[in-house]
Write a protein that binds this DNA or RNA. Structure first.
Lengths: 252, 252
DNA sequence: CGACTTCTTGAACCGAGTCAAGAAGGGTGG
DNA sequence: CCACCCTTCTTGACTCGGTTCAAGAAGTCG
């Protein structure tokens, strides 16, 4: 029996993780129960804290709430943000590998996370119980790669206006997958400086670009929230291709 | 006993694959023999042929010779190149996953490849024989992600001059890892149009940028080859961070 | 309320794109 | 071996998206 969105969306906060997993691979109720039964310890991170360094071996964690990002600093102090980490996301690959990723994962807001070290043991220990979980982690990583490709498209071939639109839609869809949107409205706890660093633009220009999107009645923005007023038109101007999973639960 | 670069570099062409694997994970001689013993069928691809579509399930292959790239087309016909595929590289993730990657892998020159379908069976069948191989594939994927992050840095935060320098060094180092360089000289069978599409620049501007690099006596370029005249200075201007593996064999 | 951060706006500048034309290579057939 | 064609490279002139610098307005928090 496959899990529907309703089954995994009750009050308990940890369930963003189940929703996230279910969004990419299809989980049975047994899988879900098995995952909930894993001994996971909770951990909080203040803004600017490092969830994973990229140079030390990474301890996998699931984010329960809060936003983070992966970034790299340049010698001149500027930084590039590679991607954002949202509730439900897995931080730090579950497959230990000698190749080090030169990027730090840091908290942008306060983050609550589950230390998923036992998950790593479960996966590499071939205990067999968690085949679904292993597949899910793999799928999460693949989706992460797809997001990186989108980031390359934005930076390489899109104008500021298109980039902003594209990123806003992407964030909306990712949040929708874990049930954190209200229609076209969603939390966006990011300063314009952060958006600029993610989109490869200056703060001044991201500001003007957002103004333009507002003037065009495409979005509303402010007070930690964003609203997509014209999702269809936005997707069109941004040439947005939604993430595709052959079996996960898509919300819309 | 660990394998040194010398042991895996004899005349047989297929050995770029072993060198590639050894560059990220450390292989024993037994591992190497086991891998060479896999039943692999050879396959050729003409320029523009698709090695993997991104929408159909991908069949993993090892590239023996020739260059390719992963790319996505835009509605207006322009394209973004995400990364290049070089000899020794693995194309098409070996871990089957329901998440589809919206990018096509195409040949830029003629490509000879090994169909590694049996590899997939070996990995997912948990036959145990090929633990090293599984680790190697995983490491290759991780290194692919590191390359994508570099691409994001280039596009997001670097000038045309820095981008070109950065990419040339990266290609040099990747080719060096499989023994295809002669000192600072290496094959570069790419038109300027291709470089432009990879670096998010116009052909005209990549041309002027390469001229500048030549005038500054940083590089020589032409006839399908490139030479890094000032590797140290280039690495500096490009803020180049070499790929790091905790156990693979680095060449220099 | 005051001090700090974040957002907004203006003006000047510049890196990169676009358009257009010409030069240099590289194959092919005569 | 040369003449021709087609692709790739090169160069110039103009335009434009985005950056930089600088200052002021609006939030936000103690």
């Amino acid at each position: 029996m496959m899990l529907s969105q309703r089954d995994v969306a009750p009050a308990r906060g940890d369930h963003v993780v189940l929703r996230r997993l279910a969004s990419v691979v299809g989980l049975s109720l047994a899988d879900a129960e098995m995952i909930l039964a894993l001994p996971l310890e909770r951990h909080g991170f203040a803004p600017h804290a490092e969830l994973a360094s990229g140079f030390a071996p990474q301890r996998p964690r699931f984010v329960l709430s809060g936003w983070g990002c992966r970034q790299r600093l340049l010698p001149d102090g500027r930084r590039q943000i590679f991607d954002f980490v949202l509730p439900g996301d897995l931080v730090g690959s579950c497959s230990a590998s000698p190749v080090l990723i030169p990027a730090a994962t840091v908290a942008l807001t306060r983050i609550e996370a589950l230390n998923a070290g036992s998950l790593q043991a479960t996966l590499t220990g071939q205990e067999g119980v968690s085949y679904a979980l292993a597949r899910a982690c793999c799928a999460l990583e693949r989706q992460g790669e797809a997001l990186l490709l989108s980031q390359v498209m934005r930076l390489g071939r899109q104008t500021a206006y298109e980039r902003a639109a594209h990123l806003l839609i992407e964030l909306h869809d990712r949040l929708a997958a874990v049930g954190l949107t209200q229609g076209n409205r969603f939390p966006l706890p990011l300063r314009q400086e952060i958006l600029a660093e993610a989109l490869g633009l200056s703060v001044v220009h991201i500001n003007r670009t957002l103004q333009q999107l507002r003037r065009d009645r495409m979005i509303e923005l402010g007070h930690g929230f964003a609203v997509l007023l014209e999702p269809e038109r936005l997707r069109e101007v941004a040439d947005y291709a939604p993430a595709v999973s052959a079996e996960g639960i898509q919300l819309h």
